Amino acid sequence: MTDVAQLAGVSHTTVWRVFNNHRGVRDETRERVHHAIRQLGYRLNPAARTLVTRRSNTLGVITADRVSFRTTSILGGFERAARSAGYFVTITSADTPTQGTLRAAVNRLRDQGVEGVLALVPLDPTTFTSEPFPIVTIGARRRRALGVVDVGSSAGVAMATAHLLGLGHTTVHHVSGPPSCPEARLRRAVWHRTLRAASGRQPRFMAGDWTARSGYEIGLRLASDLDVTAVFCANDHMAIGVLRALTEMGRQVPEEVSVVGFDDIPEAAYTTPPLTTVGQDFETLGTHCMAMLHALVTDAERTVPCRIQLATHLTIRSSTARSPGSRSS
């Protein structure tokens, strides 16, 4: 920085102000400093800056899946918002998430000096750490310094279930996510509550693992039961598997069985038939995660709101129709 100051003909303090985007530096002076930086090929030393400021300007992300549309879209929104706010992002994976591996992932990120963590994992992250530390997650319960961005599952599940009941189906079967996942448990509870409020029969749920393969295997079992006329799946991938199984077993969709998914992934519009599903804006979700984590990091008293709820919407396509019984009556 001293070399930059000498070449630009300014003080060391002015160079520091330019690096930190402080106001009060004239445009002409700022340009001279940037010209000197380019000439010298100067790069700021993050480690040295951290020692001075006591801040790393780095946030961590824990993910169990980097390839799904949901995860990549959330990460895209989060990273763009982080970059705009002057943060670096470092990502670590937990391919087989357990309480032990997730706690180790948080500790690994903290050892790298991150100031907060976004947890994109299917387990409740409230036991990741035994001491207060800024963590934001999606759809889990708040404890300590944990921030929660609610994806609107409750409203979305209620909309999907009510849509099928409104088409004359006497009940709605449910393909759930894994029982260990808090978000899957929430969606299952809202489905059950919506059926109970409508005085509908409440069949047993069938648990998958969020994959199309598990949806296909459950779909084969559902297809063999001729009383099944409506199925709500906790995500679109499992719904796609259910559609394939129903077709292979000769059950027509939606003439005999209606199917609804959750997420509105791009492929949902191109299934046969196109899938009715609950939509979410994942990039906006990532942006909100970043805003909440930034607030938790910068507010030492943790006085910021620690829950944000996003809206969902039902996109009705061709995989749902009136129940066979209501059409014939």
Score class of each variant (00 low, 15 high):
residue 75 L to E: 08
residue 320 T to I: 04
residue 166 G to D: 12
residue 68 S to M: 06
residue 124 D to W: 02
residue 155 A to S: 06
residue 2 T to K: 15
residue 6 Q to T: 11
residue 137 T to I: 02
residue 171 T to N: 08
residue 60 G to P: 11
residue 286 G to H: 01
residue 86 G to W: 00
residue 117 V to W: 01
residue 28 E to M: 01
residue 141 R to Y: 10
residue 162 A to F: 03
residue 203 P to T: 10
residue 16 W to F: 10
residue 293 L to M: 08
residue 280 Q to E: 08
residue 259 V to I: 06
residue 238 M to E: 14
residue 63 T to A: 11
residue 79 E to V: 11
residue 48 A to H: 05
residue 252 Q to M: 08
residue 109 L to W: 05
residue 66 R to S: 12
residue 164 L to K: 03
residue 209 D to P: 02
residue 90 T to Q: 09
residue 9 G to D: 12
residue 91 I to P: 00
residue 261 G to N: 04
residue 41 G to T: 00
residue 40 L to K: 01
residue 215 G to L: 02
residue 216 Y to S: 10
residue 51 L to Y: 02
residue 166 G to E: 10
residue 325 G to R: 10
residue 151 V to T: 14
residue 217 E to T: 10
residue 328 S to R: 15
residue 278 V to M: 05
residue 284 T to M: 07
residue 147 G to Y: 06
residue 322 R to Q: 12
residue 168 G to Q: 09
residue 288 H to Q: 15
residue 152 G to D: 01
residue 127 T to K: 09
residue 115 E to H: 07
residue 130 S to W: 04
residue 109 L to Y: 10
residue 135 I to L: 13
residue 11 S to F: 11
residue 162 A to W: 00
residue 319 S to R: 03
residue 120 L to M: 12
residue 65 D to M: 00
residue 107 N to L: 12
residue 62 I to H: 00
residue 24 G to F: 14
residue 308 I to W: 00
residue 210 W to Q: 03
residue 198 A to Y: 02
residue 7 L to D: 06
residue 19 F to A: 15
residue 159 M to G: 03
residue 297 V to R: 04
residue 224 S to A: 15
residue 65 D to G: 05
residue 2 T to W: 00
residue 81 A to M: 07
residue 147 G to F: 06
residue 92 T to L: 08
residue 158 A to W: 12
residue 79 E to R: 07
residue 284 T to G: 13
residue 24 G to D: 07
residue 109 L to R: 01
residue 60 G to Y: 05
residue 17 R to T: 12
residue 245 A to D: 10
residue 310 L to T: 09
residue 225 D to G: 12
residue 280 Q to F: 08
residue 26 R to S: 15
residue 268 A to L: 14
residue 261 G to M: 11
